[in-house]
Structure formats: structure tokens, C-alpha cells
Simulated assay, not measured.
Amino acid sequence: MLALTRKVGERIVIGDNIVVTVVGVKGDNIRMTIEAPKEIKIYRGEIFDAIAAENKQAAVPNDISELDMLKVLQINMK
């Protein structure tokens, strides 16, 4: 992890194509812009965590018997 101190107007460059610029500081809040190619997804941390949790939940079957039924179907198809 890298921790930096930046002033308004100063930038951080990530790789060759991502630029983070501090545009304002008000109390405990920092306002920044992020310039990145459109194919790079940018999420706030809490949104990213919610998406990851939802994906993890979707990957777990709700009922183990459903998984057992799929195994039986696979055996019958052979």
C-alpha cells in the first residue's frame, strides 16, 4: 500500500493511463477526479464490496438438494 499526501491540483499517476487529481478539500472530505480508459471499471469501495458479496452469494446454491439434483442429471446424461 502506498500512502501519499497531496494538495489541491496535485496528481497521482497509476500505470500509463490512470490519473487521480485532488480538486478540493473541505473538512474531512476530499474531492478528486479520476481519468481512466472507459474499459476500466471504477467503483467506490462500499459499492465494490457490495458487488463482491452479491457475486459470492450468487455462487453458493441456496439448497444443497438442488446441487444433488444436478449431479443426478449429469450422471443420467452420460
Rank of each mutant, 00 (worst) to 15 (best):
L2I: 07
A3G: 03
A3S: 08
L4P: 01
L4S: 02
L4V: 08
L4I: 07
T5P: 00
T5C: 03
T5H: 08
R6L: 15
R6H: 11
K7S: 10
K7I: 01
V8T: 14
E10D: 15
E10V: 08
E10L: 13
R11N: 14
R11H: 10
R11M: 14
V13G: 03
I14T: 01
I14F: 05
G15H: 07
G15L: 10
G15V: 06
D16L: 08
N17E: 13
N17R: 10
N17M: 05
N17P: 01
I18E: 08
I18F: 07
V19A: 06
T21M: 09
V22T: 05
V22F: 06
V23D: 12
V23N: 10
G24A: 14
G24L: 09
V25T: 05
K26S: 14
K26H: 05
K26W: 02
G27A: 11
G27P: 04
G27V: 07
D28R: 05
D28Y: 02
D28C: 00
N29D: 09
N29Y: 10
N29G: 01
I30R: 04
R31L: 13
R31D: 14
M32R: 06
M32P: 00
T33R: 03
T33A: 09
T33E: 09
E35W: 00
A36F: 07
P37M: 13
P37S: 11
P37F: 13
K38G: 10
K38E: 14
E39N: 12
E39S: 10
I40N: 04
K41W: 03
I42G: 02
R44D: 15
G45F: 06
E46W: 08
E46S: 14
I47M: 11
I47C: 01
I47A: 12
F48E: 09
D49H: 14
D49R: 15
A52H: 06
A52E: 12
A52D: 08
A52W: 06
A53E: 14
E54V: 02
E54W: 04
E54G: 03
N55F: 08
N55E: 13
N55L: 15
Q57H: 09
Q57K: 15
A58Y: 02
A58K: 12
V60C: 01
V60I: 15
N62K: 11
D63E: 12
I64P: 00
S65N: 08
S65I: 03
S65K: 07
E66W: 02
E66T: 01
L67Y: 05
D68A: 11
M69P: 00
L70W: 03
L70C: 01
V72A: 15
V72S: 12
L73V: 03
L73P: 00
Q74V: 02
Q74S: 08
I75L: 11
N76H: 05
N76G: 07
M77F: 11
M77C: 06
K78N: 07
K78W: 02
